[in-house]
């Protein structure tokens, strides 16, 4: 019996999320008593074979076809469905990234099987599996059961720490040529646009966040100044984007960006759970809020209980003073 782990790569370099999926899949395969095999789709995947073996892939399926010039959810889903049939796989997994979940949903639709997205734990003993998955972007967990001939599950991103296997697996290369209809090109990426190569909200070492308490678009200027002083970027809550004070690309939270800076300075933000799930991976949190009882204050490492309009400029000034 076989488990397939869908791995995503960029010209042969594996995405971190794929290594998480393989680390998760390797343990799940062992518990389920099936062999752990990786599948990589499209050109340039050969370069990833060594790493996939190191992370526990007994077999690496390299799928290629003229249609597979770039990512395409339907073409990838169809490729996976054909590979499942050809190698008799009974389990398929991937990391719960946008792509991972989308392709597994495509696969599930094609096989008419359930698909359980964003699992944290899976117990594969027995015909019906027990699992714990993420709801509300991580604010809530759901215990569920899965009954299916083909078990299709994604593992929530950042749950498993990627680590190579204690001993590398064989990583035997198996070329796979799916039979794809040319019409599947209809959802293949036709172009890519690069917007920024600098630090982004998701990679910034410091995020200075502002919420409804900031009060207006203009009042974000002191936050910008502080962020610049710290080599960071400005983030915000949904109350701010809803008011049109900042673009949505600055929004932290369940329906925005997940941040993981060294320090998150959250000012004028109450810390609603949907905001919190996007901020909780921050190493440290400093809250500036007039309300001592605000959720963000009780969850922060440090807090200043005061008006952000006075505190933020004072911090910037103090930094400049010390730098001389």
């Amino acid at each position: 019996m076989t488990m397939l782990v869908l791995c995503d790569h960029d010209r042969g370099t594996l995405a971190d999320a794929s290594l998480e999926a393989l680390t998760f899949g390797r343990d799940l395969a062992a518990a389920a008593g099936v062999s752990c095999e990786a599948v990589v789709i499209g050109k340039g995947a050969e370069g990833a074979v060594g790493q996939l073996a190191a992370y526990g892939a007994a077999v690496v399926h390299l799928a290629s076809h003229d249609v597979l010039t770039d990512f395409g959810p339907e073409a990838w889903g169809e490729t996976l469905a054909q590979l499942v049939a050809s190698c008799g796989a009974s389990v398929v997994t991937a990391c719960g990234t946008d792509r991972g979940n989308e392709v597994l949903a495509q696969l599930a639709a094609r096989l008419d099987e359930p698909f359980v997205a964003n699992c944290r734990e899976v117990d594969p003993s027995g015909d019906t599996w027990s699992l714990t998955r993420v709801q509300w972007g991580g604010s809530l967990l759901e215990d569920a059961t899965l009954t299916a001939d083909h078990k299709i599950v994604s593992v929530a991103h950042h749950v498993v720490e990627a680590a190579p296997a204690s001993e590398p697996a064989a990583g035997t290369v198996a070329a796979f040529s799916p039979d794809l209809d040319a019409s599947l090109a209809r959802t293949v990426v036709t172009d890519r646009v690069v917007l920024s190569r600098g630090i982004t909200l998701s990679t910034a070492p410091v995020v200075v966040g502002g919420g409804r308490g900031v009060g207006s678009a203009e009042a974000f200027a002191p936050l910008e100044e502080l962020a610049a002083e710290l080599g960071g970027v400005v983030g915000c809550s949904r109350a701010v984007t809803n008011n049109g004070w900042r673009p949505h690309s600055d929004q932290v939270g369940q329906t925005g960006t997940r941040i993981a800076p060294q320090v998150y300075i959250a000012s004028g933000i109450s810390g609603a759970i949907q905001h919190w799930v996007g901020a909780m991976a921050s190493k440290h949190i400093l809250a500036i809020n007039t309300d001592r009882e605000a959720n963000i204050v009780t969850r922060a490492d440090w807090a200043v209980i005061a008006d952000l309009h006075k505190v933020i400029p004072a911090i910037t000034e103090e930094i400049r003073r010390r730098r001389g």
Partner: peptide, 26 residues
Amino acid sequence: GQLRERLHRPVEQVSETVILGEGPEA
């Protein structure tokens, strides 16, 4: 084939918040 059994909240680490001050002098 996916059946919900139970919902629960993730376990959270609760930390003491250190209050650094109550005004710009913080």
